[in-house]
Design a protein around this nucleic acid. Sequence first.
DNA 1: CTGTTAGCGCATTCAA
DNA 2: TTGAATGCGCTAACAG
Lengths: 342, 342
Amino acid sequence: MITIYDIAAKAGVSAMTVSRVINNTGRISEATRKRVRKVMEDLHYIPNSMARSLVLQKTNILSLLITDITNPFYTTLARGAEDAALRAGYRLLFANSDEDYTKEKGYVDMILSTRVDGVLFAPTGDQSLENLQQLQKHQIPFVVLDREIPGIEADLVLGDSKEGARKLVDHLIALGHRRIALINGSPDVSTARLRYTGYREAHLLSGIPIEDSLVVHLNYRDFHDESALDALLSHENPPTAIFAANNMLAVGIIQSLRQRGLQVPGDLSVVCFDDFGPAGAINPFLTVASQPAYQFGLLGMQLLIDRIEGDPSQELRKMILPSELLIRTSTQPLKEEPWIQT
Amino acid sequence: MITIYDIAAKAGVSAMTVSRVINNTGRISEATRKRVRKVMEDLHYIPNSMARSLVLQKTNILSLLITDITNPFYTTLARGAEDAALRAGYRLLFANSDEDYTKEKGYVDMILSTRVDGVLFAPTGDQSLENLQQLQKHQIPFVVLDREIPGIEADLVLGDSKEGARKLVDHLIALGHRRIALINGSPDVSTARLRYTGYREAHLLSGIPIEDSLVVHLNYRDFHDESALDALLSHENPPTAIFAANNMLAVGIIQSLRQRGLQVPGDLSVVCFDDFGPAGAINPFLTVASQPAYQFGLLGMQLLIDRIEGDPSQELRKMILPSELLIRTSTQPLKEEPWIQT
DNA sequence: CTGTTAGCGCATTCAA
DNA sequence: TTGAATGCGCTAACAG
């Protein structure tokens, strides 16, 4: 491996001079600068960032921790995070928790030993508290994405889950639906709680009673869990519409409905949070509350970098990004005779 | 920051003993081992992997370079790569070239300065040759994914583009189509060339003449380019079916067709390479040649790790993964009267 | 403008 | 079984 000493020797200067040329620090005569540059090119020299990190106590690496890389919401978010990081000269250490707390914990250990300069952290749920505290203990700056964690004070980029849920449910109610099931994420996750709140509020404001048996909790990635749907469909007075708390759940639900010979929206209307990215554009079908995923990543990363490079004692920032109701063809007005009676 | 010296001092041993405890090397009495362990926990000690890398000349970081993170094919691939890397104890440095050679080059520089142990490299095209040679020059092991690069000898994981293309075109021909357009990727990309070859072969074997004006080239990410479609649709004798060389192109094509009031498959049948992952499962619509994306990542990463940890002089391996024809509803038998005549 | 010294945190080599 | 010296590649601080 070529080092600055190799360059120094060949250029007839000291290693320090080479270092100065590389970093454009100090005053160097144009002559030696050129000479050093030439030797660096001839020898295909590339600085060793590990050695640099060790002495500077700064790695120029940020970690992006997301919960599901197969979810278009997070890949679009990652794209935004990448843009912001690259622009500021940071490298990205990748982590994907799969909505699994244990895997998340493993990644936090990795992050700690890598001495990254900061973490853009999409937590799996309230249990992530410990992992976040671990980062705090080691003074790693972080920004929390998408889900608020009780007990953690940090910069935050969230969607407006309550408002988005209200829009979705209001839409269903406006179509005449009165029995609307909520297939929610775990109550351990703030977005799931808020989506439930929005669901409740929409009902309350319309004077429609809430029925607990129409509300079920899954994991956001359990999109092949059938039991919840079984219970709902065998209900004595089944729902006419389903609100899936995120896009992956909606995928599973629609597949299951089809397997049972039920049509969407013919038999049941379905709505969900989060859109499907380019892949979903082929056949825009689901009525969704679309969140600005790219902005989540971009703004989150900008907050993180600002926290690292700017005044670290500045007060915490909390950004709440609105979601947009996109009405498509998975919803239709309530029919007089719901499917169950046929 | 806590170092092994802090631990050593508190435990009343030398730093070397601490190092041995951490790495389980050498012989250490159970008593001191326990004492050291205790102190490490009390002080929340975490080894500094940068320092470790510097002395060991091994970072335990691998880089995954993909060309489009918003494409489900690559995210699923990334998921496979992640699994294999994690299992073997490697961290993942993320890179997304956006099908852009210049961006790819930037990431290669980053990879070089990071001194990663290896790269799982999905090249943008033949021009990636220089970037790959750059890695070779610096002795960074790599495995090439998805696209073969003339001039580069390396471990390789490819799909069977020719065969997949043949299956797709054969399917269209079997449905009665004779005028099949190919909207291809850049001829600079091996998969595009092979898909064209498969397209040709299918025609030849069926005795159907090829018409050059039905073959156009785009970039795999140019899924909003309208000009190619304009040309095809204003053709004096337009196609009745379209073969899009990848899923992202298909998305753009179908959107454009819809905007022009044309129905798929009513007016034109459409097929493409690569499926759409979970997001596409909502409404399986496009007839595709589905490639085993997860396997691409998993096998590629396994080859890479084996190349790094195993015998480095072993001969090169080339894996060709088959694709599967999934017939769905974007294709239908040729109608007597194509849309253009109405 | 340039060089010398020292040290970032750790592991290898050689001694004890 | 343990420790001391040394160096991985680089840069900050100080000297000249």
